[in-house]
Computed example of a mutant assay.
Amino acid sequence: MAMNLAPGNGRRNRGRAPMSEINVTPFVDVMLVLLIIFMITAPLLVTGVPVDLPESRANALDQDQEPVQISIDQEGRIYLDDEEMSRNALATRLNEIAASQTVDDPRQIMLRGDKTLDYGLIMGVMGELNRAGLNRVSLVTTGSSE
């Protein structure tokens, strides 16, 4: 007389061992699809004013806080962080920014000007920055290939 001493002698467990592995293939497939989606959409998320910057061999600056972006496009339109404004409105906003900065941590200003612009227009914006008391101004360029 033979006895089956395996646990769970009922009808439901007959012929099947409990599964102790996790199939990670579907998880990897989903992660690869998400990676491809993010790789395609990330370059499209960059917004800003289209400016053809001049080239320079200068090194990039280290920054602690988000700088204020001032851009001047090819037609001479002035943008403060993607918002187009007149020169008078720019002077008002720069005074507000200067009033909100601290002595220990002055705001960094990034000035982006199209390389085909008149030098006087860029110097006029720099004069407004100086008049407002914002003296940490960086001129943004593209990196040189040399």
Rank of each mutant, 00 (worst) to 15 (best):
V49T: 13
N130T: 08
D52G: 13
T47M: 02
V49Q: 11
V49A: 07
L44F: 10
A42T: 05
S20Q: 12
I36D: 04
Q101K: 03
V103A: 15
D62M: 03
D81E: 13
E96L: 10
A91H: 05
T116W: 06
L121E: 10
D105A: 10
V28M: 00
P43G: 11
Q74F: 04
D104I: 06
D114N: 12
D82F: 08
G15R: 07
S145F: 15
T41W: 13
L5M: 14
G133H: 06
R87I: 14
A98F: 06
D118H: 07
V103G: 10
R57Y: 08
Q63D: 00
A89W: 04
E83G: 15
L34R: 00
L94I: 05
R77G: 00
P67I: 01
G76H: 05
L80E: 05
M85V: 13
I97H: 02
D73K: 08
T25R: 10
A2C: 05
R16G: 08
V28C: 00
R136D: 06
I97F: 02
Q69Y: 01
E55G: 05
G48L: 08
D52Y: 14
M31A: 14
Y119H: 10
N88L: 12
L121N: 09
L44V: 03
M110Q: 02
G120T: 08
D105F: 09
S138L: 02
L45V: 07
V140A: 05
V30Y: 04
G113W: 01
L32N: 02
A2V: 13
L117I: 09
S86D: 15
L61V: 02
I40Y: 04
M31Q: 09
I70V: 08
E66P: 03
A91S: 15
I37V: 15
L61N: 00
N9F: 08
V24Y: 04
F27I: 13
D52E: 15
L44C: 03
T102M: 02
E96Q: 14
N95E: 10
I36A: 13
M1H: 06
L121G: 12
G113L: 03
V46K: 09
D73S: 06
I40R: 05
V103E: 15
A98L: 07
S138K: 03
